[in-house]
Deep mutational scan, measured.
Amino acid sequence: ELREAFRLYDKEGNGYISTDVMREILAELDETLSSEDLDAMIDEIDADGSGTVDFEEFMGVMT
């Protein structure tokens, strides 16, 4: 189920989504998050600083 959700956002099928897209997902899930909260969450999610979120990083957030 998580893989299907990931595929919805990984429109190009390249195995990752951008941190911008991940930020939008988080904002949709919790509309009360401030910009600073979102920045901090993205920094934590994208631990390797690649600017992308792969499936493993995505799973870590969603579980």
Rank of each mutant, 00 (worst) to 15 (best):
L2S: 03
L2N: 02
L2Y: 10
L2G: 03
L2T: 02
R3H: 11
R3A: 13
R3L: 15
R3Y: 15
R3G: 10
E4S: 04
E4D: 14
E4A: 08
E4Q: 06
E4R: 06
A5H: 13
A5W: 15
F6H: 08
F6E: 11
F6M: 08
F6K: 11
F6W: 12
R7I: 15
R7G: 15
L8T: 15
L8W: 14
Y9L: 15
Y9K: 03
Y9Q: 04
Y9E: 04
D10F: 06
D10T: 01
D10P: 00
K11P: 14
K11Q: 10
K11A: 10
K11N: 08
E12Y: 05
E12C: 07
E12V: 04
E12L: 08
G13S: 05
G13M: 06
G13E: 06
G13V: 02
N14C: 05
G15D: 03
G15C: 03
G15W: 03
Y16R: 05
Y16C: 02
Y16L: 05
Y16V: 05
Y16W: 14
I17T: 01
I17M: 03
I17S: 00
I17D: 00
I17N: 00
I17R: 00
I17E: 00
S18A: 08
S18F: 06
S18G: 09
T19M: 12
T19I: 14
T19K: 09
T19F: 14
T19P: 05
T19Y: 12
T19N: 12
T19R: 09
D20V: 13
D20Q: 14
D20H: 11
V21R: 11
V21N: 10
M22F: 09
M22L: 12
M22A: 04
M22I: 07
R23T: 01
R23F: 02
R23Q: 01
R23C: 02
R23H: 01
R23K: 11
R23M: 03
R23L: 03
R23V: 02
E24F: 12
E24W: 10
E24N: 14
I25A: 04
I25C: 03
I25L: 11
L26T: 00
L26E: 00
L26H: 00
A27Y: 11
A27Q: 12
A27W: 09
A27K: 14
E28W: 09
E28C: 14
E28S: 15
L29G: 05
L29E: 03
L29F: 11
L29P: 00
L29W: 14
D30I: 10
D30K: 08
D30N: 13
D30A: 06
D30C: 10
E31Y: 11
E31P: 15
E31D: 13
E31S: 14
E31L: 11
E31N: 13
E31A: 14
T32I: 04
T32D: 08
L33H: 04
L33N: 02
L33K: 04
L33S: 03
S34D: 06
S34G: 06
S34C: 04
S35W: 08
S35H: 10
E36T: 10
D37S: 08
D37Q: 13
D37A: 11
D37G: 06
L38H: 01
D39Q: 08
D39E: 08
D39G: 05
A40S: 11
A40M: 11
A40P: 01
M41Y: 09
M41P: 00
M41Q: 04
I42V: 07
I42A: 02
D43E: 12
D43L: 14
D43R: 13
D43W: 12
E44Q: 13
E44M: 12
E44F: 14
E44V: 13
I45N: 01
I45V: 09
I45W: 06
D46H: 03
D46G: 03
D46W: 03
D46K: 04
D46V: 04
D46C: 03
D46S: 04
D46I: 04
A47T: 10
A47H: 12
A47G: 08
D48F: 06
D48R: 07
D48K: 08
G49F: 05
G49T: 05
G49I: 03
G49C: 09
G49W: 03
S50M: 06
S50T: 11
S50W: 03
S50P: 02
G51C: 04
G51R: 06
G51K: 06
G51N: 05
G51W: 02
G51F: 03
T52Q: 09
T52W: 05
T52A: 05
T52M: 08
V53F: 05
V53I: 15
V53R: 01
V53A: 01
V53G: 01
V53D: 00
D54W: 08
D54I: 06
D54Q: 09
F55D: 01
F55C: 02
E56S: 09
E56R: 09
E57Q: 15
E57K: 14
E57P: 01
E57M: 13
E57N: 12
F58W: 10
F58P: 00
F58T: 01
F58M: 02
F58N: 01
M59N: 06
M59W: 05
M59Y: 12
M59F: 12
M59T: 08
M59P: 00
G60N: 13
G60M: 15
G60A: 15
G60E: 12
G60Q: 14
V61Q: 05
V61M: 11
V61A: 15
M62V: 07
M62E: 02
M62A: 05
M62S: 03
T63A: 11
T63F: 07
T63W: 06
T63Q: 12
